[in-house]
Design a protein around this nucleic acid. Structure first.
Lengths: 115, 115
DNA sequence: TTGGCTATCTATAAACG
DNA sequence: TCGTTTATAGATAGCCA
């Protein structure tokens, strides 16, 4: 999205990398907020720049997101073969009561195969 | 970015919300990966859909990101007035050795005022 | 640097099949 | 009820003040 196309590989020039980080970091934070609002999702985003600076966003709070994350991970581990490790695939996460508000959630309308 | 402009507010129609979630969620994950690669940043992203599904991305691992996050948060709490609570502002985070590789990091080239 | 300013490239809202 | 296909809105790479 700019004057020229770029390939996704580490930007070697430190100055350019810093500038790009600043721009994209803000863009990512903005998109995270939009997703949370538009889709009523709980989102947690943590970014450390290569210089060590921290940027963050959490629709609720980072602590809540982390706790919910850990809870879901724990549960999913019990559902699959204990010897198999959980990877990047989206996993089921119907943690009753852990999300503040969830209108029209009971109906399982768009249920695809869970797990 | 579509046929029509939309305002950032909760999408009431469950089906539309689900569709938008799917698209934007993927977009956000992709952007998170790009930022991590392009800018050599450490990124952690957790998304729970309104139906409770978990999507995630971590450039290193979610555990590492969380640990680093907590460490930085702890440190920043000691630097500011203990009675003041840390909010959303980016904070300093020069945690030596917590990131696997960080070439040309020692030089404090783009250091703006830290904290 | 440190931010703005477009020209372009992407993401995606609606429309289709 | 979907996955695909466009037409646009939005993000941003390269510049320049």
């Amino acid at each position: 999205m700019g004057r020229g196309k770029i390939s996704i590989r580490r930007i070697e020039n430190p100055t350019s990398r810093q500038v790009t980080f600043s721009k994209r970091s803000n863009g990512l934070l903005k998109k995270a907020k939009e997703l949370a609002i538009l889709c009523d999702a709980e989102v947690g985003l943590v970014i450390f720049s290569s210089t060590g600076r921290l940027h963050e966003y959490a629709s609720s709070s980072m602590v809540k997101v982390t706790e919910r994350y850990n809870k879901v991970k724990e549960e999913s581990r019990q559902l699959v073969d204990p010897t198999a490790d959980v990877k990047h695939q989206p996993v089921k996460a119907e943690v009753a009561g852990s999300s503040p508000v969830n209108p029209d959630l009971g109906s399982d309308k768009y249920a695809t195969t869970r797990l």
